[in-house]
Design a binder for these strands. Structure first.
Length: 264
DNA sequence: GAGGGGGGGAATTTGC
DNA sequence: AGCAAATTCCCCCCCT
């Protein structure tokens, strides 16, 4: 168990505790829906998985050619234009909540991704790989909503929210995908938040135990889709990370070869 | 050149 | 009080 995993485990143990305590709260409560963590069942209902191994995951550590293609950015449904005014009617959060951990941004984003009401602001690009993107038109609304939920003094903007997201690159909780407004969750984050990413780096896998390495994935056909780390030290779960790309721009099975990965 | 998106340094604020 | 996380401000770069 890596240092990162221990830390994340602690966070999610706490989150689960809270979820258990509030399991009677209706997730569909529009006024306070973002005050409380979503019910586990609510999250899971978004991911109709009956068995974790029924669904091929993108993070098969041994079979690099087995990853499914992902949803093309351009093929996103018409939901991006849907209007859900209730989503933004969110009151400030209660201060000094006792026995409750601070809501993390990635938790909020994951929550938003599981809520159809936020589909006009944030959507899964590929749920299986934990990749999501913001809708340019409404990303500021989501950011504003996040700021309100946190009770910030000033209005949250996408730029500021993105700054926080970039900080996640250092911890590896979320990394930036080299595509506009697109980010990717660490699979362990997805799994613990109730997602479908079921593949966990094996105990002996470098991604589970050696933080600090950096990787730059050079993909032959679609450099614009590269996932990459910046200069900051990032955890080395780059195997799952580097494996990701987007259908239509890059063929995973052909692009990810030993010769295409450069360790910086 | 303008605008949007992205990256990051640094200081500050906030909550645990 | 100390720390982690997030916020805020700022500047810069790249791309279209």
């Amino acid at each position: 168990m890596s240092f990162l995993d221990n830390d994340i485990n602690q966070h999610f143990q706490d989150a689960n505790d809270v979820i258990q305590r509030h399991s009677d709260d209706p997730y569909c409560d529009t006024e306070y829906k973002y005050f409380e963590p979503p019910m586990r069942s609510s999250i899971m209902c978004c991911y109709p998985i009956t068995h974790p191994f029924d669904v091929p995951g993108p993070y098969d550590w041994n079979e690099q050619t087995s990853w499914p293609h992902v949803v093309p950015y351009d093929s996103l449904g018409p939901s991006v234009t849907m209007d859900y005014p209730q989503f933004y009617s969110i009151a400030p959060p209660p201060r000094n909540g006792k026995g409750r951990k601070k809501l993390r941004l990635f938790e909020y984003l994951h929550e938003a991704l599981g809520d159809p009401n936020t589909a006009d602001s944030i959507q899964w690009t590929d749920r299986g790989s934990g990749t999501f993107h913001f809708i340019s038109k409404n990303k500021e609304k989501l950011a504003e909503c996040w700021g309100k939920r946190k009770g910030n003094r000033k209005t949250m903007t996408y730029q500021k929210m993105a700054r926080a997201l970039r900080n996640y690159s250092r911890t590896g909780e979320i990394i930036k995908v080299r595509r506009k407004l697109t980010y990717q969750f660490n699979p362990s984050i997805i799994q613990r938040l109730g997602g479908i990413s079921h593949v966990i780096p094996p105990a002996g896998h470098p991604g589970a135990s050696h933080p600090g390495r950096e990787v730059l994935l050079h993909q032959q056909h679609a450099p614009a889709e590269q996932a990459y780390y910046g200069s900051a030290a990032a955890p080395d779960w780059h195997s799952w990370y580097g494996h990701f790309s987007l259908q239509g721009d890059c063929d995973l099975s052909t692009s990810f070869t030993s010769s295409t990965v450069t360790k910086v």
